[in-house]
C-alpha cells in the first residue's frame, strides 16, 4: 500500500539489534581481539619495498584476491540479515553488487590503526606506501582518510553491524525490482540503528555523521571502478585470466 514506515516495538528493535550484531560478529573475518594481538606487527622497511617493487599487475591481483576474500564474508553477513533472503534473487544480487565493497570500507575501520595510519593487510599492518605499486595513490589515500574518519566515531560492534546492514540495504540502488521491500528493510534497520545509538547514549549528531559517510562510500566505490577500468585497459588479459571470478562478476 505504499506505506514504508513500519511500526516496531522496542522489544523488536532490541531483537533486531541482537540478530544483526550476531550476524556481523559471525562474519567479520577477524575478531577485535585477534586484531589487537596483531597490532604490533607492522611491515618492516624491506617488506614495504618488496611490495613497492612488485609489478603493478601482481599487486592489483593480490589486492583483488584480498577484496574477494572479504566479499565472501559480506555475502554471508547479508544472508544472515533478517529478511534479506526473502528479497527476490535479482535484488539480493543488486544489493551485494553495489554494496559489498562499501561494507568492506566500513568494516575496514576495525582493522585500522589511526595512530600509525596503517591497515591490516596480508598478515601485518600496512601504511599507504605499501600499496604504491597499484598506481592509485590518490584512491589509497582517500581510503585511508575514510578509515581514519570512521575510526574517529569510535563505533561499537553493534553500531558498526547496524550501519553495515543499513549501507547494504540501500533502497536507492539502480535495477531493484522490489524497491518497496528493500525500503522497508532499510527503514527497519535505520530504526534499530537509532535505537542502539540512543541506548548507547551516543551524541545526537552521530546518525547524521553516519548518513554523510554514505556519499563518501559511494565516491570511493566509483573511484575504485574507474581505477579498475583504467587498469583493465592496459592489462585486459591479466584481469581476464588472473583475477578472481567473483571480483570480475561484481566489478567487471
Amino acid at each position: 500500500n505504499g506505506d514504508t514506515s513500519p511500526t516496531v516495538s522496542m522489544a523488536e528493535l532490541d531483537h533486531q539489534v541482537q540478530l544483526i550484531s550476531k550476524s556481523h560478529l559471525e562474519t567479520c573475518q577477524y575478531l577485535r581481539e585477534e586484531l589487537q594481538q596483531m597490532s604490533w606487527q607492522n611491515f618492516l622497511q624491506d617488506e614495504v619495498e618488496s611490495y613497492q617493487s612488485k609489478p603493478r599487475e601482481v599487486m592489483w591481483q593480490l589486492c583483488a584476491v584480498k577484496i574477494t576474500e572479504a566479499i565472501q564474508y559480506v555475502v554471508e553477513f547479508a544472508k544472515r540479515i533478517d529478511g534479506f533472503m526473502d528479497l527476490c534473487q535479482n535484488d539480493q544480487i543488486v544489493l551485494l553488487k553495489a554494496g559489498s565493497l562499501e561494507v568492506i570500507f566500513v568494516r575496514m575501520c576495525r582493522m585500522f590503526d589511526s595512530q600509525n595510519n596503517t591497515v591490516f593487510f596480508d598478515g601485518k599492518f600496512a601504511g599507504p606506501d605499501v600499496f604504491r605499486a597499484l598506481g592509485c595513490d590518490d584512491l589509497i589515500s582517500s581510503v585511508f582518510d575514510f578509515a581514519k574518519s570512521m575510526c574517529s566515531l569510535h563505533l561499537s560492534e553493534d553500531e558498526l553491524a547496524l550501519f553495515s546492514a543499513f549501507v547494504l540495504l540501500s533502497a536507492d540502488r539502480s535495477w531493484l525490482q522490489e524497491k518497496l521491500q528493500v525500503e522497508k528493510l532499510q527503514q527497519k534497520t535505520q530504526l534499530a540503528l537509532q535505537h542502539v545509538l540512543q541506548k548507547n547514549q551516543r551524541e545526537d549528531g552521530l546518525l547524521h555523521k553516519l548518513r554523510c559517510k554514505v556519499s563518501a562510500l559511494r565516491s570511493l566505490c566509483s573511484r575504485h571502478t574507474e581505477k579498475l577500468s583504467a587498469f583493465r585497459a592496459v592489462y585486459p588479459d591479466i584481469v581476464g585470466t588472473h583475477f578472481p571470478p567473483l571480483y570480475k562478476e561484481l566489478f567487471g
Binding site: V75, E76, Q89, N90, Q92, I93, W175, L246, E249
Partner: peptide, 17 residues
C-alpha cells in the same frame, strides 16, 4: 542478472554455515 552473476548466485544459494 542471475546469469551474469553465477558465482554470487551460488554463494547466496549455499546454506549458511
Amino acid at each position: 542478472l542471475k546469469e551474469k552473476h553465477k558465482i554470487l548466485h551460488q554463494l547466496l544459494q549455499n546454506s549458511t554455515s
